[in-house]
């Protein structure tokens, strides 16, 4: 099949799926709206949600609440993780000391820290930021470390032959050629952060899309629930696309992996 034909079949199939969804959830149809809402209900709800508050805020308020916490945790993770990763690659001894602690923490899902955080800092933004921070930290550190390792050794030798000192080699050669891997790490970290935030909002939040979804589930508002789920997915895609854009801007010499996870 040519790619044109695939796109055509894909578009047709999408329409077909939506039609099947609408048919199954029609009034008096086989699927009750308490089980799954119809596409029309979802759309109506989305428009209503935009202007009228649901459990405390309008849609924009919940979205901003989610996004601000994700960004806070992700940026904090980068501030700690990137220097730590680079330092671990630069000073082997530091890696020997820090890495075992890291290996100990890594297999624990970031979510498992939520109950501990709740006991230590209580329900609030800080608890969610901390959990997102933990989720983002691991990919930040690992990719920063591998970014330094992936630098072509020939470049470093060339730099040294041409008289660069260690500091110049680090700032002018290592960090620059490590940018693509650093950005890949940033993207994975952001994806992890977003996924973890949703879970954190199920457990400890007073606003945010995950909080909306859980409340909608308890109140049997399936239309709100589906709106929240779709928005969570959409925002995740947008964050990932933004990171792809950043990669093209800051490392235009690298061919982008379109399917980056």
């Amino acid at each position: 099949m040519t790619s044109n034909k695939v796109a055509f079949v894909g578009a047709g199939a999408t329409l077909l799926w939506v039609a099947i969804w609408a048919w199954l959830t029609r009034e008096g149809g086989p699927v009750s709206e308490l089980f799954f809402p119809s596409p029309g209900d979802v759309l109506d709800r989305l428009i209503m949600f935009w202007s009228r508050p649901y459990i405390g805020s309008t849609l924009m308020g919940h979205i901003l609440s989610s996004l601000s916490i994700v960004l806070a945790g992700w940026v904090l993770g980068g501030i700690v993780g990137v220097p730590l990763g680079i330092a671990m690659a630069w000073w082997t001894r530091l890696k020997w000391i820090v890495f075992p602690i890291f290996q100990l923490i890594r297999p624990v899902p970031p979510l498992a820290w939520i109950p501990l955080t709740l006991l230590w800092i209580g329900i609030g933004d800080a608890a969610r930021i901390f959990v997102v921070f933990i989720a983002a930290l691991v990919p930040w550190v690992m990719n920063s470390m591998h970014a330094v390792y992936s630098v072509d050794k020939l470049l470093i030798d060339a730099g040294r032959t041409l008289g660069a000192n260690d500091r110049k080699i680090l700032t002018r050669i290592v960090i620059r050629s490590a940018i693509p891997t650093l950005l890949a790490g940033a993207r994975i970290a952001l994806g992890n952060a977003w996924t973890t935030l949703v879970a954190a909002e199920l457990l400890a939040a007073t606003a945010g899309l995950g909080y909306v979804a859980l409340n909608a589930s308890r109140m049997l508002d399936t239309d709100v629930l589906v709106v929240a789920m779709l928005l969570i997915g959409l925002l995740g895609v947008m964050l990932s696309a933004l990171m792809g854009l950043a990669a093209r801007m800051f490392a235009p010499w690298v061919k982008n992996d379109r399917n980056g996870g």
Binding site: F35, A199, L214, L225, A228, M229, L230, G233, G236
Partner: peptide, 25 residues
Amino acid sequence: RAVFNPIFEVLRYIPPFAWVPIAIL
């Protein structure tokens, strides 16, 4: 693939935890 991929792509971008509320329901 052309027929089922649209569904797969939409569903896979919704994080697993976002399914918890609907699974509970």
